[in-house]
């Protein structure tokens, strides 16, 4: 960690994932990374994008 702080000129502060991040991770787990469709064919659940957009309205480039 010290190496990164020094080289990148940043300071790390311990944190946690936010509730929105946790919720998004659950959606991504169910609709993408935890599925055979993603593993074999790179297909995601049809409603995943909408659900993520609802969580993060400003991010529309996925």
């Amino acid at each position: 960690m010290r190496g990164f702080e020094r080289a990148l000129k940043v300071q790390f502060h311990e944190g946690e994932l936010t509730e929105a991040e946790l919720q998004a991770a659950r959606l991504l787990m169910e609709g993408k990374y935890g599925t055979r469709e993603w593993l074999l064919e790179r297909k995601v659940a049809p409603n995943l994008r909408e659900e993520l957009n609802a969580l993060f309205p400003a991010s529309d480039n996925r």
Binding site: H13, L17, A25
Partner: peptide, 30 residues
């Protein structure tokens, strides 16, 4: 500049990828 540091325990590959993407989406949304 302050950065958030998150130390996660060992997780499955699918969960790790899901969390990484969730972090990205949250950051991109400000």
């Amino acid at each position: 500049m302050r950065w958030r540091l998150i130390r996660s325990p060992a997780l499955s590959g699918a969960w790790n990828m899901a969390i990484d993407e969730a972090m990205l989406l949250a950051h991109a949304a400000g």
